[in-house]
Computed example of a mutant assay.
Amino acid sequence: MTAAARPCVAHGTFVVERRYDASPARVFRAHSDPDAFRRWFAESENWTIHEWVQDFRVGGGFTGRFRFGDESNDTWFNDTAYLDIVPDRRIVLSYVMGRVKGDGKQRASASLATTELVADGSGARLIYTEQGAFLEGADDIRMREEGCAEMLEALGRELESRA
């Protein structure tokens, strides 16, 4: 198969589930509160945040620019749009991720993601489903799933630390 005949987009879907000892309302607030969301979603060891803006409403979104490690590494971007929000139950969003290159952007993927919150005894079950289009040379679906699983672990730590 010639390079021109090979598919240039890889598609993938994954689901990550977590149970938290927090109500669906508390888990939802950890998404809707800009400070809490930034703590568990964007802040971590070895990441530098260059830009962060969140507007949590249907039609709003968030924009982030990040760098992992030292200045020799690429700066990444995440441009997200909120498509549907049902308090304490559901968040649907679309996002594009990639690298910042000079004055432009090199897109690596485009995704549709749904977060569902379901009461589970005294806690909440979170079901995160992502459907992605991974563009030429982008990371694969397994890497994205691992990254999302790590973020949901960070959400759990946020909920425990603010109990």
Rank of each mutant, 00 (worst) to 15 (best):
G59M: 06
E160L: 02
F28Q: 08
T80R: 05
S161V: 02
A138N: 07
G147R: 05
R39L: 08
E158W: 02
Y95V: 03
R18S: 06
T13I: 09
E71P: 04
E136Y: 03
D55Y: 00
G60P: 00
F66V: 05
W52V: 03
A81V: 14
Q54T: 13
V53S: 15
D140K: 01
G61H: 05
D70E: 10
G59R: 06
C8K: 14
A133M: 12
G60F: 03
D120P: 09
P24Q: 08
A113D: 13
D70R: 05
F41T: 03
P7T: 04
S32E: 12
T75A: 12
C148M: 14
F37R: 13
A138M: 11
D79V: 11
P7W: 08
A42S: 05
T114L: 04
P87K: 06
H31W: 15
G156A: 10
L135M: 09
E158A: 11
M97T: 15
A110Q: 13
E146L: 06
A42G: 08
E136S: 07
N46G: 11
L126V: 10
W76I: 13
G64R: 04
R26M: 05
Y128D: 04
L112I: 10
R57S: 12
D88F: 04
E45D: 10
G137L: 01
D21L: 13
R157E: 03
A4H: 11
D33E: 01
A138I: 08
A22L: 03
G98Q: 04
F56W: 07
V53Y: 10
Y82D: 09
W52R: 06
G121H: 11
A119G: 07
G102C: 00
D21E: 14
A110V: 13
T114Y: 06
D88S: 05
S32C: 11
H31M: 11
I127V: 11
S111P: 01
G132V: 00
P34T: 04
